[in-house]
């Protein structure tokens, strides 16, 4: 960045004598002042939008979370941390946090593991890998609403294709929709289906950037394919794995579309984000309580994000 900075502004003299303070000095030069306003003209609309619709809600949520407030009502009572106390002492916390944990861990583990397997297959020299790579990635870009409906039909215990297959081998279809635990299994399966292509493509990029000389040396030393994979590829892929762990965890914690379409009532599938939605926009309109859940979710996301920021920083230094 310093390169561009210096080259695009040869006219502005660096800290000359004069009033103390760097910014002060720079602003005196006409060119720097012009740049100051050019910058604002170019960047300000976007920055204002981000401030109003991304940063402001974080603060508003904290404020709303201290209120006993029905959405749409003109009056609200300040209740301090009561909403948090209610959440953590009622049945909600173990239920919602438990569902969130199961959903997140299984979807993250599942899509990363299957993604790695598919990446290994894609990393072969056979023809058609480019097509297959796009194919497995496709569900990732499709509407969660559309995808959720398609799978809901496949899982339909009466007339779904899965029930039909199960009947063929003499089995009854499980009650995917009515059983809360099976609902969670169903949503997890579809979520993994939709997202594993992302993991596969990222892992494939990781595999293709493995240092070839090291891998060759290992094979010359007589390490077979599996051995090479286990003791060379896996450790060398650890930055990719860590990166995927963070990004897929973040997106799993935000999963909404599939849960909304496949289990609108959230029975057995209400994760933090879905519970926040249900509380505010479902039957109860408990805005303050919903905001408190959003704050809890945000706190979790923040911890993960800090981890990621540190990771990105490290990555920058290495490459």
């Amino acid at each position: 960045m310093t390169r561009q900075l210096a080259s695009t502004s040869p006219a502005s003299p660096p800290d000359q004598s004069g009033p103390p303070g760097k910014h002060q000095t720079r602003r005196w030069s006409g060119r720097a002042r012009r740049d100051f306003f050019v910058f604002l003209a170019l960047a300000l609309p976007n920055l204002i939008l981000i401030a109003v619709f991304t940063y402001r809600p974080l603060i508003s949520n904290i404020y709303y979370s201290t209120l006993d407030w029905t959405l749409g009502s003109a009056s609200a009572t300040v209740v301090g941390i009561d909403n948090y106390v209610t959440f953590f002492t009622s049945d909600d916390a173990p239920k919602v946090l438990g569902t969130t944990a199961v959903f997140t861990l299984v979807t993250v583990g599942g899509s990363m593991l299957l993604g790695l397997v598919i990446a290994l297959a894609l990393n072969s020299k056979v023809r058609g890998t480019t097509f297959a790579r796009s194919a497995v990635f496709a569900p990732y870009v499709l509407s969660g609403v559309g995808v959720g409906l398609v799978w809901l039909f496949i899982f339909d215990p009466g007339y779904g294709v899965l029930a039909w297959i199960l009947r063929g081998i003499g089995q009854q279809s499980p009650q995917w929709i009515n059983d809360p635990q099976l609902s969670l299994v169903m949503v997890i399966l579809v979520y993994v289906w939709k997202n594993l292509g992302y993991c596969a493509v990222v892992y494939l990029a990781g595999l293709q950037s493995l240092p070839q000389d090291v891998m060759e040396a290992a094979s010359l030393d007589g390490a077979n394919g599996f051995r090479r994979f286990l003791s060379m590829s896996i450790p060398l892929l650890s930055p990719t794995t860590f990166f995927l762990l963070i990004t897929t965890m973040l997106s799993s914690l935000q999963a909404f579309d599939l849960i909304r379409i496949m289990t609108p009532l959230g029975t057995g599938t209400s994760t933090l984000i879905y519970e926040a939605y249900l509380q505010a926009f479902g039957a109860f309109n408990r805005a303050g309580y919903s905001a408190a859940i959003s704050v809890v979710l945000f706190a979790i996301l923040l911890v993960i994000t800090v981890l990621q920021l540190r990771f990105v920083e490290r990555k920058v230094h290495y490459s």
Binding site: R56, Q254, S290
Partner: peptide, 20 residues
């Protein structure tokens, strides 16, 4: 600030944005 905004999920902002 932009980098951090990249990591704020839009889902936690829906209630305040709805009210606004």
């Amino acid at each position: 600030l932009i980098l951090v905004a990249l990591m704020v999920p839009p889902q936690v902002s829906i209630l305040p944005n709805y009210i606004l």
